[in-house]
């Protein structure tokens, strides 16, 4: 499949307001996205996700590196590049609260040069899909947070672009609305063959929607993998060990030293191991103080654990 977005070594620093020193928010990020892919952009707070997305959207000019959208440079051929993308950056803050649902949709599409007749048709289509028909004339201010969020996504879809970027689309939504938004996005991706990039902290979004995820931390890509692969990779080596008694300082220090990524609460020790034999090293540590083992289980990993482990590992190395 053809590549539609090519992010090549972008770097972006912000000058701190007071000290004037530069803070590097994105430090040489590269990845590419093929047509029709749904890619999750993950990373802890401040990792540089929004900066990356805004650079792709042409709202930020990277200090170094380049971004191509359908072959067009996001800076030098900005307007051509923008014809292929639309975005939901701040969810419900991206729409006019004093205009109605319909007025918002018409306004933003008109600003992209869409004719009235064309936009009417698309509005009908989208309102039906988003189940917002009966809110058509409602002022956005009077809508619920979830409906505003859906409207913001509908606004991005109005333009019918190949690529849609979403920055934390389920932020602040309740479980049900978040589910609805996820299924809408899934529908759009499958039915309309859109390429979607989503930044999120919501692991359900990743597990539900994304085939692939690019994980960034401190402005660098630390993993770029198929989601299923990542899960498999970690599945084989995640253990949950139920202990009989608490560990001593000495044991903890050793554990910390050999297995930086462990999790201990009460008597449950969770470890991820690089290879299966490492389990014996754990046993060695436990036997130092004749700590008894109640049970050992391979755990079912979910994406959240994988993500946390990757980020932790990165921090340690």
């Amino acid at each position: 499949m053809e590549t539609i977005i090519e992010v090549d070594g972008i770097r972006k620093g912000y000058k701190k307001r007071k000290s004037k020193e530069e803070f590097i928010a994105v430090d040489g990020i590269s990845f590419s996205v093929r047509k029709g892919e749904i890619v999750g952009l993950l990373g802890p707070n401040g990792a540089g996700k929004t900066t990356t997305i805004k650079s792709i959207c042409g709202l930020l000019v990277p200090d170094q590196g380049s971004i191509k959208i359908n072959g067009y440079d996001s800076v030098k051929e900005r307007n051509k590049a923008l014809r292929h993308i639309s975005a939901v950056l701040e969810g419900n803050r991206n729409v006019y609260w004093r205009l109605s649902v319909e007025e918002n949709l018409e306004y933003f599409s008109g600003n992209r040069g869409m004719r009235k007749k064309e936009s009417k048709e698309r509005i009908d289509q989208l309102l039906e899909l988003f189940r917002l028909e009966d809110k058509r004339k409602e002022i956005v201010n009077n809508l619920s947070r979830g409906m505003q969020q859906k409207l913001a996504i509908a606004v991005a879809l109005m333009a019918n672009t190949d690529v849609i970027l979403l920055d934390e689309p389920t932020l602040g939504l309740d479980v049900e609305t978040s589910y609805e938004v996820r299924s809408l996005l899934k529908h759009i991706a499958e039915r309309e063959g859109k390429t979607i990039i989503i930044s999120t902290h919501d692991m359900a979004v990743v597990q539900d929607l994304c085939k692939r995820t690019v994980i960034i931390n401190s402005g660098k890509v630390i993993a770029d993998e198929n989601v299923q692969h990542l899960l498999k990779l970690f599945e084989t080596s995640a253990y949950e060990i139920q202990l009989k008694e608490t560990l001593t300082e000495e044991q903890l220090t050793k554990l910390q030293h050999q297995f930086p990524i462990y999790n201990l609460h009460d008597l449950t020790l969770e470890v991820s191991l690089e290879h299966e034999e490492a389990i014996y090293q754990i046993m060695n540590i436990l036997s130092l103080n004749q700590t008894g083992i109640e049970t050992i289980n391979r755990t079912q990993v979910n994406f959240e654990q994988v993500f946390r482990r990757l980020v932790k590992e990165e921090a340690v190395s």
């Binding site: 307007n79 950056l89 991206n94």
Partner: peptide, 13 residues
Amino acid sequence: RGTLEQLYMSPVS
């Protein structure tokens, strides 16, 4: 509000 960024994302300058 965040609508300015939406305006800047239009292919019309």
